[in-house]
Amino acid sequence: MDTSLLFTVALVVLAFVLLFSVVKIVPQGREMTVERFGKYTRTLSPGISILTPFVERIGRRMNMMEQVLDVPQQEVITKDNAMVKVDAIVFIQVMEASAAAYRIENLPYAITQLCSTNLRTVVGSMELDEVLFQRDSINSRLLTVIDAATEPWGVKVNRIEIKDLTPPADITNAMARQMKAERERRAVITEADGEKQAAIARAEGAKQAAILEAEGRREAAFRDAEAREREAEAEAKATAMVSQAIAAGDVNAINYFVAQKYVEAFAELARNPTAKTVIVPAEMSGLVGTIAGLGELVGLAKEQQQGRSDVRRDAPPPPAPARPTPPRPPRPSVPRT
């Protein structure tokens, strides 16, 4: 009984071992190659598969998901003999498991070395300024070259990115000074533009002020001319009225006219800045006497004109009476202060 029990247990263990070696479960994102007597026959997709016992076995287990490879940092000499340190990262994805498994040994290492060599080639063909400011161009050139090189391996290179690019310390200092000078130049240009705009604004303001001042002077001159015109019209009307009154024999009109002119002349004489002395009547009654004398002269002239007209009609004219001399007002000199 012990022997039969041991045989049964051995058969059960062998069945389990055989079952696990024949039935294979492939997880999602993975693929497995199947070898028959050491030769590749097929590729197992995700799911459950059954192998031929004692004939087939699993060859390679391939990761079909996108992978990230780190390209180590290296020193590269640019076209203008500048030494820069460059490193990168590569995003790859296995598209064909059999080619990636049997056409290349150590696929990650091979892709890393391929990226390093091509990185030196691309960066070495460019000047330092192009390397610093044209990373997208470097990435696209590397991607084109490396993707074409890895296509026979069943690998697709999705992206290549320059992770870090470090120029030498002296070039970094020169770049910092250049950036500072550029900033200062922009500040000077901005300040000059501000001063220019301010000067233009001030000039525009002065122009508008001059225009408004000229318009004000023109309006004032126009109104002054209009006032003088109206004053002249009023003076002409007043003179006409006085002339009519004199012709009609009104003594008060000529007295008013002469008195007005006398007062204006005296005021003008008093305003003369070159006059050292001003002669004025001692009494204001002298002005009234002058006006009265002028009135008598006008009356005598009128009587004489009427007598001449009567003589012409009737008889020879009588001798004209002597004209009385109008009283002359005293004119004392008063020093002007």
Rank of each mutant, 00 (worst) to 15 (best):
S125Y: 07
V22A: 15
A174P: 06
A149R: 15
A282G: 10
A198E: 12
R60F: 12
F37E: 05
I111Q: 02
A270K: 11
L132R: 09
A245D: 08
R308T: 09
V12Q: 04
G295Q: 03
A227F: 13
R336M: 11
T43S: 01
V86Q: 00
Q244N: 08
G216D: 09
P335N: 10
E31R: 10
A227L: 13
V22R: 13
V84H: 02
R159G: 07
R103G: 03
L287V: 10
R57G: 06
N139V: 10
L11H: 08
Q260W: 02
Y40C: 00
A301N: 10
I58K: 02
T112D: 06
A221W: 05
K302S: 14
L269V: 08
M83P: 00
V123D: 01
K302Q: 12
V145A: 08
V280Y: 05
R323G: 02
I246T: 04
D250H: 13
S4P: 01
V84E: 01
R328G: 03
A315I: 12
T166K: 12
T121A: 13
E31V: 03
E229F: 12
D310V: 07
A169P: 05
L51C: 07
K180V: 04
A240T: 09
A225K: 08
G59K: 02
E226A: 10
E213N: 12
A203H: 10
V71C: 13
Q93Y: 02
T325C: 02
R186V: 09
A148I: 01
S285I: 12
V278G: 00
A206W: 00
E296C: 03
V17K: 11
R159Q: 15
T277D: 10
V145D: 01
S21Q: 14
R336E: 02
Q178T: 09
R328E: 14
N158M: 11
L143A: 05
A253D: 00
T41F: 00
K237T: 05
A148R: 09
A265S: 13
F91V: 14
R57L: 08
D136C: 02
K196L: 12
T117W: 04
G154M: 06
N252G: 10
R135T: 15
I111L: 09
E226Y: 03
R120I: 02
Q67H: 08
A209C: 01
E161D: 13
G216I: 01
I77E: 04
A253V: 07
A265H: 14
V71G: 12
M175K: 07
K207G: 04
A209I: 04
P324W: 01
S140C: 06
V55H: 02
I138F: 08
Q178L: 15
R61Q: 07
V258T: 06
P335D: 03
D70V: 13
P167K: 13
L297T: 15
L269C: 10
R183Q: 14
Y256C: 01
S140N: 12
V90Q: 08
I111S: 05
T144V: 14
R331L: 15
Q306L: 06
